[in-house]
Amino acid sequence: MNSFLTLVKRDLLLAYRSRGEAFNSLIFFGLVILLFPIGISASEKLLAEIAPGLIWIAALLASMLSLDNLFKEDFHDGTLEQWALSHHSLISFAWARLLSHWIITALPLIIIAPMFALSLNLPTEAIGVLIISLLLGTPLLTFIGGIGVALTTGLKKSSMLLPLLVLPFYIPVLIFGASAVDVSADGWSAAGQLYILAGLFVLGITLAPFAVATSLKVSVSQ
């Protein structure tokens, strides 16, 4: 537990010292959202209708692209190998890494998401549900994505591979996340979707670290 906290603290401190990097995924998030009104239509009614799915897809892509450097540095400078050799388990390492990665990349995104939601005319009643659904859903995206990163981390040409591995497994999160916002924008209760999302959240954060740790072990032994 101690090593877990130390690792999280170290990652957060490192991220704080190089704040510029954390903004990259935010800028990407904004850019993707910008593309849709330009590419599809600026009609306010249409945008309000597609806003829930659109914000969720943008968040999903931003979260996936930020994953790329999750274990890369640790892999190349040998930190990962030392962890695998030490008496600390790789599971707690994976847990700490994924948690701090989520705090660094996804939390700021959730904070600014309401601003973009308003720019797309999403009804204000749905903003609360949007935040809750992102709070429950984005950790899942990070944790599931972590499995893909752990599997591809030792590879030289892996940039196109990660989305191939990870995107199919993102589909349930997208379905329930976008639908929760969609339903609440229409004035209904989103409790059902949020409960399922919470269920998936618990399942994901308990099981995924095992898969991440096993995959890291395979990548290190390469």
């Binding site: 499995i147 599997l151 591809t152 030792g154 590879l155 040409k157 892996s158 591979l161 191939l164 591995l165 199919p168 497994f169 898969a211 096993t214 995959s215 395979v218 990548s219 032994s221 390469q222």
Partner: peptide, 27 residues
């Protein structure tokens, strides 16, 4: 197709086999 792509991307086939098995189970 993702499993196939992962296996083909890893040159060392022992590692590739293990990685592919993990991904199959995740699936």
């Amino acid at each position: 197709l993702g499993i196939l792509a992962l296996y083909n991307a890893i040159e060392d086939k022992t590692t590739a086999g293990k990685a592919m098995s993990i991904l199959t189970l995740v699936g």
